[in-house]
């Protein structure tokens, strides 16, 4: 940890805070431009009870004041407010609970796409212009253009009508969430597209590195192929791959909105979709801001990994 690194982390943290502030205020303003409010169309529509509700949530005050109250609440107590639709439900614990679900799904998807993507990429590069390379490249090109819900459909068909029937119905339970065996199918659907990206990149950068003089020297020294490929070539080939981990994290987070909605997984993404449809704006603002912070932190983490792999990079 040099002084430069700390300075860099400081700058980036500032950017994350700025992003969170801008995001939350834009969403706040945008949402308050909408006609009507979350309580229109509910059964209890007498003017008095409407007024009571508005007062309870502070919605009768002008929006700058509301925003001020919200920001102080977040900064001092970590309080993101209260859901408009699930009365009395504080958003912070709701968010934390759902974030655990989303993060476990996301991490599984990331692990899948990194391990398989790199493996396939290395294999394709080492066996360049053989059928292994062609199959891997073809899969990468096709998978890259596969919307995650299409992948999900195919996986569902495979597991539900194929595996499910084959295992006598014991393999996949479609009610509830929380068992380990429920993660893989949605996680693979989520991770397949980024996996193909990593495959393509790993293959390309491996091919470039493999032609370098020092790799030739390593071969000439008579080192075993595993040593040459893993220790000499792969380490350098990894650098361009790391650069896309940031965008991939964002992609996985974005994709999880669709995947959670499709599989009915009780995570942040599903909450976002349903809160948008229910016009539960407090939840929308909270989830949105949370995502912005999450993406910022993920990108920062990735950037801090670079210098470990490549000592030439310094902040």
């Amino acid at each position: 940890m040099t002084r430069g690194t700390l300075l860099y982390i400081g700058q980036r943290t500032l950017l994350i805070v700025l992003t969170a502030f801008i995001v939350s205020s834009i969403v706040f303003i945008g949402v308050h431009q909408l006609p009507g409010n979350a309580f229109v169309g509910e059964r209890r529509t007498s003017a008095a009870s409407q007024q009571a509700l508005l007062q309870h949530y502070g919605l009768d005050k002008p929006w700058p004041q509301q925003y001020g109250t919200w920001v102080t609440g977040v900064l001092t107590r970590g309080d993101l407010g209260e859901s408009l639709k699930q009365r009395g439900q504080k958003i912070t614990p709701l968010l934390l609970r759902e974030a655990r679900v989303s993060v476990s799904l996301g991490l599984f998807a990331m692990a899948f796409c990194i391990i398989f993507g790199m493996g396939l990429g290395i294999l394709a590069a080492v066996k360049q212009n053989t059928w292994i390379d062609y199959v891997a490249s073809f899969l990468a090109t096709v998978g890259y253009s596969m919307p995650n819900f299409v992948t999900a459909f195919l996986l569902i068909l495979l597991t539900v009508t194929g595996f499910y029937a084959w295992s006598g119905g014991n393999f996949y339970e479609d009610i509830g969430w929380g068992k380990l065996e429920q993660i893989p199918v949605p996680a693979i659907a989520l991770g397949l597209l980024p996996m193909t990206l990593i495959t393509r990149l790993t293959r390309a950068s491996m091919l470039e590195v493999i032609r370098q003089d020092y790799v030739r020297t390593a071969w000439a020294k008579g080192l075993r192929s595993r040593v040459v490929i893993v220790r000499h070539a792969l380490r350098n080939a990894l650098i361009p791959v790391i650069t896309v981990l940031g965008p991939i994290t964002t992609g996985v987070i974005t994709g999880s909105v669709v995947i959670e909605y499709l599989f009915g997984i009780p995570g942040l993404g599903k909450e976002f979709v349903s809160s948008i449809f229910q016009r539960d704006y407090n939840v929308v603002i909270a989830v949105f801001t949370f995502y912005a912070v999450l993406v910022g932190l993920a990108n920062l983490a990735v950037d801090l990994v670079y210098p470990i792999l490549d000592p030439r990079i310094r902040y």
Binding site: L15, I16, T19, V23, V27, G30, T250, I253, T254, V257, V258, F272, V273, I276, V284, F288, Y291, A292, V295, G296, N299
Partner: peptide, 11 residues
């Protein structure tokens, strides 16, 4: 860049 684009579009 730090804001997931799908969410922006949905909102």
């Amino acid at each position: 860049y730090g804001i997931p684009d799908l969410l922006v579009v949905m909102l």
